[in-house]
Amino acid sequence: MRIVLTGAGGFLGWHTRLRLAALTDHEVLPVTRENWSQLGEIVAGADAVIHVAGVNRAETDDDVELGNSRLGDDLASAISAAGKPLRVVMSGTIQVDRDNAYGRGKRAAQTTIASATTAAGGHFVDVCLPNLFGEHGRPHYNSFVATFVHSTISGQTPQINDNPVELLHVQAAAQSLLEALDTSEVRLRPEGTPTRVSEVWDILQELHRSYVPLGEFPDLGSAFRIDLFNTYRAGLFPEHYPIALTPHSDSRGSFVETVRCRGGEGQSSFSTTVPGITRGDHYHLVKIERFAVIQGQARISLRKMFHDEVLDFDVTGDRPVAIDMPVGWVHNITNTGSDILLTQFWSHELFRPEAPDTFPEPVSPTSLGAQR
């Protein structure tokens, strides 16, 4: 299908586009602020729409409410003008049942979009989402978790209201949006993890105490902790890397600890690479992966999906360091020396051939074809 994705440059939009690229063959037509004026033309050439564009916060409550309702009006007009049945999926919110600006704006948009969709003979699905968190959220905008991550890294202590909260990782939200493309239902309600605001802060402090001063992986014994750790790691990248590893040397040679983990699964492997050869060129949706060069010289390169900038780290076994790959970033390693390169790899989970969480994509933008 040709799928219009509104808000493709935002938090939920980027993650939804990432999951579509990894798990489907759909052609994605991204709509952002830059090409919003072309919405009608883009929708006219599509088979389906995933609407995640929205206004979370603004200077006034009126700006939040009207901003969301106007986005809905624009999309409804485009659907009506297309004059054909479309599958339309909207990222809704549990806030629609509450009398606040965000809830009122999203409720108005939902009503308008649903009416236009059904009038044209299409099928509308509301994906009602709880509070979202995940990699690359904006502090003080997308989620209190993003604010807590920023505060943790910068050494600040925010005001903490110890309220109960239901948290859903943004990739799980994206999966629900994908499932809505095929369902006969008109409403999906994915469930998150019930927790408390103070508990999230306490876990982030625990992660930080292990990871930053020691370079060790914390307890990764639950999916929620893995998601929080990946969210936290994204806030550290790239400034925190590479992580220096300490050789313990004597007359016999050197001993270097490359990985320390306090809990959960884990798997280590190593590779040899001849000069000039590149390994990798893929990305992950969940996997935590560490590269450590043991012998030789290498360049580790990364690029955030749907962006062009490439980050390079030149590393050598003579000064051992570790680089941990953020999810959603394409990465590879190239032997830039004249001898065999020896690299150790560690991931937080055992390799499962039926679900490898590895999706091919070149790091170099010059190697890219048309993006889906």
Score class of each variant (00 low, 15 high):
residue 65 E to N: 01
residue 68 N to Q: 06
residue 68 N to V: 07
residue 70 R to Q: 15
residue 71 L to S: 10
residue 71 L to T: 09
residue 72 G to V: 05
residue 73 D to T: 15
residue 73 D to G: 14
residue 75 L to E: 04
residue 77 S to E: 13
residue 81 A to P: 04
residue 81 A to N: 13
residue 81 A to F: 11
residue 82 A to P: 04
residue 82 A to R: 02
residue 82 A to W: 01
residue 82 A to F: 02
residue 84 K to G: 09
residue 84 K to T: 03
residue 84 K to S: 07
residue 85 P to Q: 09
residue 86 L to M: 08
residue 87 R to W: 11
residue 87 R to T: 12
residue 89 V to L: 11
residue 89 V to D: 04
residue 90 M to F: 04
residue 91 S to Y: 10
residue 91 S to K: 09
residue 91 S to T: 11
residue 92 G to Q: 05
residue 95 Q to P: 00
residue 97 D to Y: 10
residue 97 D to N: 12
residue 99 D to M: 07
residue 99 D to L: 05
residue 100 N to W: 08
residue 100 N to Q: 13
residue 102 Y to V: 07
residue 104 R to E: 06
residue 107 R to D: 07
residue 107 R to P: 02
residue 107 R to S: 09
residue 109 A to N: 07
residue 109 A to Q: 10
residue 110 Q to A: 04
residue 111 T to C: 06
residue 112 T to A: 11
residue 112 T to R: 08
residue 115 S to F: 05
residue 115 S to G: 09
residue 115 S to V: 07
residue 116 A to I: 09
residue 117 T to E: 04
residue 117 T to C: 10
residue 120 A to G: 12
residue 121 G to Y: 05
residue 122 G to A: 06
residue 123 H to C: 11
residue 123 H to L: 10
residue 124 F to Q: 03
residue 124 F to D: 02
residue 125 V to N: 07
residue 126 D to W: 06
residue 127 V to F: 02
residue 127 V to Y: 03
residue 128 C to S: 13
residue 128 C to F: 01
residue 130 P to A: 04
residue 131 N to S: 14
residue 132 L to I: 02
residue 132 L to N: 01
residue 132 L to M: 06
residue 133 F to V: 00
residue 133 F to H: 00
residue 134 G to Y: 02
residue 135 E to R: 14
residue 135 E to S: 14
residue 135 E to Q: 15
residue 136 H to Q: 14
residue 137 G to I: 02
residue 139 P to R: 02
residue 140 H to M: 06
residue 140 H to I: 03
residue 141 Y to N: 11
residue 141 Y to S: 12
residue 141 Y to V: 14
residue 142 N to L: 01
residue 143 S to M: 08
residue 144 F to G: 00
residue 144 F to N: 00
residue 146 A to R: 00
residue 147 T to H: 05
residue 147 T to K: 05
residue 148 F to E: 02
residue 151 S to I: 03
residue 151 S to T: 09
residue 151 S to V: 04
residue 154 S to M: 10
residue 154 S to K: 12
residue 156 Q to N: 08
residue 157 T to Q: 15
residue 157 T to D: 13
residue 158 P to S: 10
residue 158 P to Q: 07
residue 159 Q to W: 12
residue 159 Q to L: 13
residue 160 I to H: 08
residue 161 N to C: 01
residue 162 D to Q: 08
residue 162 D to L: 08
